[in-house]
Amino acid sequence: MELTTKQIQNVQDYLTSKNFDFIDLKDEILDHIISDVESFMQKGNTFEEAFARVKIRWEKHFRETSSFFFGMLYSNSKIVVNKAVKQFKYFYFLYLAAYILPVVFLKVIPIQVSKGFANSINGLLSGFTFPVLIYIGFIIFKIIQLKQKTTYSFILKTQFFGTIFLILGVFVGSVFKENGEINPVFTGFVCAGFTVGYICHHFFKKHKEVVTKYQIS
């Protein structure tokens, strides 16, 4: 027994009421819910009865939740957060390693360089940081401007704040101390900041791929 267009619209409205509009998940979940409803209707239930039963089953998947990997500020449907965590877990540890490893290394083995060399590296870092910041700014603009939401755009939104590490590391503090010794904390900030840039690039690429894929189909 196939649902009518009006009944499908009811199911779609239910998903919209749950703010579930992620294009990489929506069609699939909509199809699953409709199949569930149709199955209950085949057993003799009316559409209203069947849909009510299916909603009870799905309610827990649409419950607003957050994850340790993204922080309490970023919450969404459980089904979205679960997918996002699976995609992001590896990058979270990469991000932590990018901050912790240089700090630990430079605390254990302090490295001192000449003032001239420190100035050259500082110049290079500043020169390299600008395009990275502009690129991240472009991604932020695109994500805000584009209407299509994907799990990847959710991940991206949780990462933008990390850009602050790059600004702190290069423009507020300095990778080198007065005597030319490498500053472990700010080096950690710079490494974490560039890693955020890489993470943003990776998930923006994934987001674009999904948008293109679903536009074609």
Partner: peptide, 30 residues
């Protein structure tokens, strides 16, 4: 559903599964 979709998405992300979206009746099916 809570176990199935994360597993499918993981397999897709790992490149073990490919996805095809088709119109079936009056809805899209993945």
């Amino acid at each position: 559903e809570g176990a199935l979709y994360p597993a499918l998405h993981k397999l897709e992300a790992d490149g073990l599964l490919d996805v095809e979206v088709a119109k079936v009746g009056n809805r899209l099916r993945k």
